[in-house]
Simulated scan of single mutants.
Amino acid sequence: MPIIESTYKPPFWAKKSFTSTVFSGLARRVKGVVQTRERIDLDDGDFIDVDWSYAENPSDRVIILLHGLEGNAQRPYITGASKLFNQNEVDACAVNFRGCSGVPNKLYRSYHSGATEDLDAVIKYVLEKNRYKEIYIKGISLGANMALKYAGERNDLPKEIKAVVAISAPCDLKGSCDALMHLKNRHYAIRFLAHLKDKLKPKLEQFPQNISLRDLNSIKSLVDFDNVYTSKAHGFKDAIDYYEKASCLQFLPNIKVPTLIINALNDSFLSAECYPVKEAKQNPNLHLEMPKYGGHVGFIDKRNVYYNERKALDFINQL
């Protein structure tokens, strides 16, 4: 599919990547979204909490929303999308990945960029509600990689899945991790790592056979975290093995449902490999938009409705 020419024009003050990224993550507020929580019990004994918000009238369409690293279903990039879709007669199912709903999960494992088995469990749960004829998936950052991997790794997608939207997608996890560890992103990396290590600390007491205080103290970077915890807890050899197997880039050629990727060219979290131009040109189902501005999930626009949210709605309505 030809690359989409972007029409995104941010406010003058939001053109810098840092400004749009930080404002969107820390300052944006979305009001008026009423969420109802449900718990999905998983086959391995763990659980996932999902937060529903509904259209004013009964709908047979639903969007499944996937948050980013150390996010949750209350982040403004999730509630903003929920609000817009609800206002346009689409229910929203906002997923909290394992351990991200404010309640620790039960197992040593948690979530990661390629954990599509959990997304599959959510989709099956949603379908069991038995009234949705159309399901859309929208992932943000880590959730974007998961959504794209899910769409491309299997040939048995439920027929109800009509579209996928991926925002600020780290299509190549190794490249994205390298980008995050650049000096210019040090403040982001430190913040992410602190959250991840804090969440890992309770598992020292729960699972002393899996991790020790010495292991925890050896974690000095995001790569260390993936070497010590993410890879070992989820069946990978090491961080590199995890990055290689969980990256969605290799699965993009096999995507068979309409899919939109929006990655800003000034997104400091993404490497050159995270802009799948070749894959988009060769796959008619893949639509790639690369706005000049937007930072990481920072597509600030008018009336507190973000550009990527409006584009996602337009994309599914044009199907």
Rank of each mutant, 00 (worst) to 15 (best):
N155H: 07
I63H: 02
D172Y: 03
R214E: 15
Y8P: 03
L173Y: 06
D43C: 03
E309S: 01
H195W: 08
A312I: 01
K106P: 08
G102E: 08
V22Y: 14
A14P: 15
V122A: 03
K31W: 05
A239P: 00
V228K: 07
Y242S: 06
I64V: 15
S231I: 15
N88D: 01
G235Q: 09
N227G: 09
G295D: 14
L193Y: 04
V103A: 10
P253R: 05
P291W: 07
T259E: 01
L119E: 02
E273D: 08
K232V: 11
V30Y: 04
I137R: 14
A94F: 10
F97D: 10
G68Q: 15
N263L: 08
L260H: 12
P11I: 07
D226K: 10
Y307K: 12
K31C: 02
I140E: 13
E89M: 08
I3C: 04
A73Q: 00
T79K: 02
C248Q: 14
D51H: 08
P58D: 05
N86I: 06
A55I: 09
P253F: 07
I219P: 05
N88L: 03
T116P: 03
N254I: 15
N266S: 13
R61P: 01
A73L: 01
G32S: 04
V34C: 01
R29T: 11
P253V: 12
C171D: 09
T19S: 10
H234C: 10
L260E: 13
D49K: 01
D120W: 14
I137F: 09
G114P: 06
I137E: 11
I4Q: 10
G143F: 08
R186M: 14
R131G: 07
E289C: 11
I123F: 05
I261K: 11
Y229P: 00
Y77A: 00
L84N: 04
L249D: 12
G25L: 14
H182P: 00
S113G: 07
F18I: 09
I211W: 13
V122M: 09
